[in-house]
Amino acid sequence: MKKLIPIVIVLIFAGAIGFKLYSNKQVINEKNQPVDRSSIAVPVKVAKVKSVNVDGQFSLPAVLKPYEEVDITINTSGKVKRLNFNLGSNVRKGQVIGSIDSDIKSINLKNAELQAKKLKKDFQRIKELFEGNAATQVELDNAEFNYKNAEYQVESLKQQIQDGNLVSPINGVVVSKDIEVGEFMSAGKPAAHVVDLSKMKTLVMVSEKDVYQLKEGMKVTVTSDLFADAPMEGTISFISPNGDANHNYEVEVLITDASKKNLKAGTFVSVAFDIQSKGSLLQIPKKALIEGVTNPAAYVAKGSSVTLKKLVLGRDLGENIEVLSGLKEGELVVVSGQINLTESSIINQIK
C-alpha cells in the first residue's frame, strides 16, 4: 500500500501538468484564429457614371511600341560556334550575327564540288563521243543525270551551311539574348529579339462615332508626361475596317521623331485627335480605375455590395476618362477605398 502512494502522487501530478498544457494550447489556438471581417462593412466613396457632351479635340491613352520587332531564329539544328552580338548591340538588316558549327558540312561541300567537277568532265567527254557516234544515248543520259545530281548536292550543302547562320531581318537593337556559344540550338528556337526604335507606333481603340472622322495620313499630336513641353507629331498609318463587339476600331499611329527624344517602348502617351465631331459620352473619374489604364476595371456599387467590371476606355478627359463599354449611365463606381475590397465585400457608402 505504501508503495502505491508515491505512484498515485506522480500520476496525479503528471495529469495536472498535462491538463495545464492542454488548456494553454487551447488558449493559444483561440488567439491564432483569423478574425472574420466578412461582416464588417468597408467604407467607400462612390461617383456616378455620367454622360457629357463633347466636341472638337479628344485624346486617347496609349502605349508606345517598336515600329518593328522580331525573334531571330535559325533554320537548322547544331552547336553554336560563334555569336557576334550582345545585349544592346545595333544590328543591320541582312547582317550575319552568329552561326552553328558547320565544319563537317564544309568538308562535305568540298568533296561534293570535286565530285561535281569530275562528273561534269565525264559528261562533256561522253557528249563528244555521242556526237561522234561513239557513245549511246543511255550513256549520255546517265552521265548527264550523275552530273546534275552532283550539282544539286553542292547547292543543297551550300543552303544547309547558309541555314546555319543567324541573320537579322531588320535594322534594330538586340534586347534579349537567349543562346550562348557552345550550346545546342534547335531549328526554330529564338536566339535573340531585335526591336527597331528608329520609329515607333501606338495603337488606340476609337469609338464608332469618331472613327468615321479619321483618315489614313491624318496628323495627330502625341504627348508624354516625360516630355510634356515637347509634343510629337504622329500620322495615322492604319484604320481597321473591322470593329470589335463594342463597335470600337483599332487605329495605328506612326511616330517618326520618337527616337530624337530617346523614348522607349512601353512608355505611356496620349494621342490627341482634332476632329469636328459632336456627341455625348460616358465618363468616370480616373481614380475609379483599380489598375490604371493598362488593365482597366472598376468596382460598381449597388446597395451594400460591389461587383468588379472590366472596362474598355476611350478618350482621356483630364481627371476623367471615357468608358466605351462595361458601365451604364447612372451606375455608381467606387473612387475611394478600393484597396480593401473584394467582390464578396460589404460596403458602407460615405460622402
Rank of each mutant, 00 (worst) to 15 (best):
I5N: 05
I7G: 06
I12A: 15
F13Y: 10
I17Q: 08
I17P: 06
S23W: 06
N24Q: 13
K31W: 11
N32F: 11
D36F: 02
P43I: 01
K45P: 02
A47H: 04
K50F: 09
G56I: 04
L64E: 01
N75I: 07
T76D: 07
S77N: 07
K79Q: 14
F85T: 06
F85A: 05
K93E: 13
I97D: 05
G98N: 04
G98L: 06
I100D: 02
S102A: 14
K105T: 11
E113Y: 03
L119Y: 08
L119I: 02
Q124L: 12
L129F: 13
G132T: 12
L140Y: 04
N142A: 13
Q153S: 13
V154K: 03
I161G: 04
G164Q: 00
S168C: 00
P169E: 03
V181F: 00
M185I: 12
A187I: 00
K189W: 02
P190R: 00
P190C: 00
M200R: 00
L203V: 14
V206D: 03
V206R: 04
E208R: 04
K209N: 11
D210S: 08
M218G: 09
L226G: 10
A228L: 07
E233P: 05
G234K: 01
A245L: 11
N246Q: 14
H247M: 13
H247C: 09
V251Y: 00
D257A: 05
K261D: 12
N262K: 12
Q276V: 15
G279V: 03
K287N: 10
L289Q: 00
V293D: 07
N295V: 13
A297M: 11
Y299C: 10
V300S: 08
T307H: 14
K310G: 10
G318S: 01
V323L: 05
E329A: 07
S336L: 15
G337F: 00
I339W: 15
S344D: 15
I346L: 15
I347Y: 01
